[in-house]
């Protein structure tokens, strides 16, 4: 049962912002196909009237006061993490 085509892989790669090499795309097509076939077994379960579980904390909304907290970080420390920066601003390649 083949569900994932080469076009599907390219579409999923695009949705995922991944520019794959052809070799890797071929390998991933087979892997994704196997994984989708495996997870497809859930279709045999009757879940009529069952509510989904998105989280398991029992917590409802968790509120905090609306005050600024810099978490002990400066803007400078964060800009320093960027691959390239000029005068405390993140520098990106020209793409236009």
């Amino acid at each position: 049962m083949t569900q994932i085509s080469r076009d599907d892989v390219q579409h999923l790669a695009q949705l995922s912002s991944l520019q794959l090499s052809d070799d890797e795309a071929d390998g991933l097509r087979v892997d994704l196909d196997n994984i989708v076939n495996y997870i497809h077994q859930l279709s045999e379960l009757d879940t009529t009237g069952v509510e989904p579980t998105y989280q398991v904390t029992d917590l409802q909304n968790v509120w905090r006061d609306d005050v600024v907290d810099d978490y002990g970080l400066t803007g400078q420390a964060l800009v320093k993490l960027a691959p390239d920066a000029v005068e405390n601003q993140i520098k990106v390649p020209k793409v236009l």
Binding site: D8, L12, L15, S16, E24, L28, L32, I35, V36
Partner: peptide
């Protein structure tokens, strides 16, 4: 590759 597999399966099941 495993990161890519999981990201792409995620994109698939959410699409």
């Amino acid at each position: 590759t495993e990161n890519k597999r999981r990201i792409m399966i995620g994109s698939y099941v959410l699409s």
